[in-house]
Design a protein around this nucleic acid. Structure first.
Length: 589
RNA sequence: GGUCCCAUAGCUCAGCUGGAUAGAGCAACAGAUUUCUAAUCUGUAGGUCAUAGGUUCGAAUCCUAUUGGGAUCACCA
C-alpha cells in the first residue's frame, strides 16, 4: 500500500500546498459495512485544507482516482475516505504476488538472533507452564526466521543445585534400585516422583521438629533431610565420584524423558548449555565491575551493585564466601553466549516472575559497557494457573505435559471417530491425525493469547476443537486440499478470463495480501498471537467464500480455475502460517 | 510499603503507533446438508471497555489518581 501513501503525499502537496510525511497519513482497512478496501482518515488534513473533513476527503479521493489506475472509485463518510481498488488490481496481486513461491519469503536481513527457551530443571518432568514456554519460544524462533533472521535456538538446562540433590537423595534412600527400565516409568517422571517424595518426608520432619518446640524457620533449617541434601550438593561441587555418578545416571534418565516430550511437542534446539558448566562463570565479570567501580565490596567480602539511582535496589552479585549467585551465573552465561555466536539480538523466554531479575541483569551489562547488551530482551510471559491456584511440582499439583498431550490426542481421536469421516484412513494415518489435531488444539489454545497475559487452565474442561481453535483452521486446510484434489491440475492460463470478483473473493485476496506484513509485525512484537489471530481471520474468510461460491460447479471454466487458484493460495498461506506456530496441518480429516 | 504486569459480553479472548455504530469464539436460541468435507455457514440475544478526572476535533487505546487481581523486592535458582 506504499503507493497510496506516496500518491496521498502528492495529493496534499498539489491540493493544499503542504508538505507532510508518511507518518502523518493514517491508512486502515475499510470496515466490512462500508464499500472499499482501504480507508484514509482525513481529519488530520483539515488543519491545512481549511475545509470540512467530507470535502477534503472528496478532493483527495478525486485526485487519487485520477492519478492512479488502480483506484476504481471512492466514497466519503464523515472524515473517512474509503478507496475501492479495481478488481484488476486484486487479480494482479493474486497472480504476481501471492501465488509465486517467494510470497511472504523475506530475504536474509543479515542479523543473528538467539532464542533461549525451555530451560528445564532436571529433577522433574515438564508441566503445562513449560509447555507454554516451549511453544512460545519455538514459535517466536520460527517467526524470526521467517522474517529474515538467522536464528539460534538454545536451551539452558538447569542440571545442578539443591533441587536436583533432593531427587537424588530420595532415590538413594527409598528408591531400592528403581530405574526407568525396571519400573516402565519415563525417566523424568521417575526423578519427579522422588522429588515429591523428598518434599513429603521433609515436611514430616519439619512437623516433628515443630512439635518438639522449634519455630517454622528453625525446623526448616534443622530437618535432617535438608542437611543431607545440602551436604550432597557440597559433595557434588567437590567432585565426589559417587555423587557425580548418581547425578549422571539420574540426569540421563531425565534427558531421555525430555527428548521424548520435546519430540511430541515438536520443538528443537541448536545448542544446549548446561548450568553445571556455567555456574562458575561470571567471576571475571565481577572483577571487571569492581575495577570499573560499578560494583562495590562490603566488609563481609560480598559484592554488590547499587541500583537505587535507577529506581531499583542494591543487588548482591557475589556471596561473601566468593561463590556465585544466580545473577553471577547469568552475567557469565550472557557473555559466554555472546562469545560463542556474536548475535545481534538475544531473547530470553522466561516467565514474568523473573521480570525484575532480567531488568537488573540487562542494566548491569549495560553499565559494564557491553554494547551487545542493547540487543538483550526478556520475552516475559504470564503464568499458567489452575482454578485451584498456582501449579507446584513438589506438591504434585501440576498439569503434566505428557499427560496433557495424551489427553488431547484422546479427545481428538474421539471426535474424529464420532464424525466417521476417516474410516478409509490407514492406521498410521489415523494416529498421525489424532496427534496433529490434538497438538494443534493445544498449541493454538496456548499461542492465540497475548504472551504477557496470565492464562487460566481448567483441566476439567477439555480444550475446544470448534470455533476459534486450531482444528477449525486445520479443517479449513483439509477442505481446501479436498477440493483441489478433486479438481486435478491447476491451470493458471484457464483462469485469465475471470475478471469480475465476488465480494468474498475480493475479501479473501485482501486478507492474503496482508500475510507478509503480519509476519513482520509478529517478529517485531515477538508475538505468535498476531499470526494465530490472522490465520483465524483468513480461515473464516475462506470458509465464507467456500460456502457462497461453488468451485467445481462454477458458472464457467475460467471462474472455476480462478477459484481453484484462490483456494490454493489460501491453503498455502494457512499452512505456512500454522507452521510458524509449530502446528501441522492435515491433507484430510 | 517500593516497583512491574493485568482489568473489554455469562465464560475465553481480538481490537496495530488515538479514528466510523467496540469485534470473534464458547455457552443460549432460530435456521442452512438432493450440490466441492456441517470440526462448516447464516441469523437472534448479550457491553457505562474496573472507577473518576485530564489531554484531543475524536479515547477501550495516551496521562494522572483510585479500586481489584497477579508478580517481585533472598548470600534460592
Amino acid at each position: 500500500m506504499d503507493f497510496i501513501v506516496a500518491a496521498t503525499l502528492k495529493a496534499i502537496k498539489h491540493l493544499y500546498n503542504t508538505d507532510i510525511t508518511a507518518g502523518d497519513i493514517n491508512l486502515q482497512e475499510t470496515r466490512k459495512e462500508f464499500d472499499g478496501q482501504v480507508t484514509l482518515v482525513t481529519f488530520p488534513f483539515t488543519r491545512f485544507s481549511k475545509k470540512s473533513p467530507e470535502q477534503t476527503g472528496n478532493e483527495v479521493g478525486a485526485y487519487l482516482q485520477n492519478e492512479l489506475s488502480e483506484v476504481a472509485g471512492f466514497n466519503v463518510i464523515k472524515g473517512f475516505l474509503n478507496i475501492c481498488f479495481a478488481d484488476d488490481y486484486w487479480l494482479t496481486q493474486l497472480y504476481s504476488e501471492i501465488l509465486p513461491d517467494d510470497f511472504a519469503v523475506f530475504k536474509p536481513n543479515g542479523q543473528k538472533v538467539m532464542v533461549e527457551y525451555s530451560s528445564p530443571n532436571t529433577n522433574k518432568p515438564l508441566h503445562l507452564g513449560h509447555v507454554r514456554n516451549n511453544l512460545l519460544g519455538f514459535s517466536v524462533a520460527e517467526i524470526l526466521a521467517a522474517a529474515g533472521y538467522e536464528v539460534i535456538k538454545t536451551n539452558l538446562v538447569n542440571d545442578r543445585g539443591i533441587h536436583i540433590c533432593k531427587s537424588m537423595l530420595a532415590w538413594q534412600k527409598w528408591g531400592d534400585g528403581e530405574t526407568p527400565e525396571l519400573s516402565g516409568m519415563k525417566g523424568d517422571h521417575l526423578a519427579g516422583k522422588y522429588y515429591v517424595l523428598f518434599d513429603k518426608e521433609y515436611k514430616l520432619q519439619i512437623e516433628a521438629l515443630k512439635a518438639a518446640g522449634q519455630t517454622e524457620d528453625e525446623a526448616k533449617k534443622n530437618a535432617p533431610l535438608i542437611k543431607e541434601a545440602q551436604q550432597m550438593l557440597q559433595q557434588w561441587e567437590a567432585g565426589d565420584a559417587e555423587v557425580k555418578k548418581l547425578w549422571q545416571t539420574m540426569n540421563t534418565w531425565v534427558y531421555t524423558g525430555f527428548a521424548e516430550t520435546y519430540k511430541k511437542l515438536g520443538v528443537s534446539f541448536d545448542k544446549f548449555y548446561y548450568e553445571s558448566d556455567t555456574y562458575i562463570l561470571g567471576k571475571d565479570i565481577i572483577e571487571e565491575g569492581l575495577e570499573k567501580d560499578i560494583f562495590f565490596r562490603k566488609e563481609d567480602n560480598s559484592v554488590w551493585i547499587d541500583l537505587t539511582a535507577d529506581g531499583l535496589d542494591e543487588k548482591l552479585v557475589l556471596r561473601s564466601d566468593g561463590t556465585s549467585v544466580y545473577m553471577t551465573q547469568d552475567l557469565g552465561t550472557a557473555q559466554l553466549k555472546y562469545n560463542d555466536f556474536h548475535m545481534d539480538k538475544s531473547l530470553y523466554v522466561v516467565g514474568n516472575e523473573q521480570d525484575y531479575h532480567f531488568k537488573v541483569l540487562f542494566l548491569i551489562l549495560k553499565k559494564l559497557g557491553k554494547t551487545w547488551a542493547q540487543g538483550l530482551f526478556h520475552l516475559s510471559y504470564g503464568m499458567v494457573d489452575l482454578p485451584s491456584g498456582k501449579m507446584k511440582s513438589r506438591e504434585g499439583t501440576v498439569v503434566d505435559a505428557d499427560d496433557l498431550m495424551a489427553e488431547m490426542e484422546q479427545t481428538a481421536k474421539e471426535q474424529a471417530l464420532a464424525k466417521g469421516k476417516i474410516d478409509a484412513f490407514s492406521e498410521d494415518e489415523k494416529l498421525h491425525l489424532y496427534h496433529i489435531i490434538g497438538m494443534g488444539a493445544l498449541k493454538y489454545f496456548l499461542l492465540k493469547v497475548d504472551p504477557k497475559k496470565r492464562l487460566l487452565f481448567d483441566p476439567n474442561e477439555s480444550v475446544e476443537l470448534e470455533g476459534h481453535t486450531g482444528p477449525f483452521i486445520q479443517y479449513t486446510h483439509a477442505r481446501i486440499k479436498s477440493v483441489l484434489k478433486k479438481a486435478g491440475a491447476l491451470e493458471k492460463s484457464k483462469a485469465t478470463g475471470y475478471q469480475k470478483l465476488a465480494g468474498e473473493e475480493r475479501d479473501l485476496i485482501v486478507a492474503l495480501t496482508r500475510f507478509p506484513e503480519i509476519i513482520k509485525l509478529a517478529a517485531e512484537a515477538y508475538s505468535p498471537a498476531l499470526i494465530a489471530n490472522y490465520i483465524y481471520e483468513l480461515a473464516k474468510n475462506y470458509n465464507k467464500f467456500y460456502h457462497e461460491n461453488p468451485i467445481l460447479q462454477a458458472e464457467d471454466e475460467s471462474s472455476k480455475h480462478f477459484k481453484l487458484l484462490l483456494s490454493f493460495a489460501a491453503g498455502k498461506v494457512i499452512s505456512k502460517g500454522m507452521k510458524l506456530l509449530g502446528i501441522e496441518v492435515p491433507e484430510r480429516m
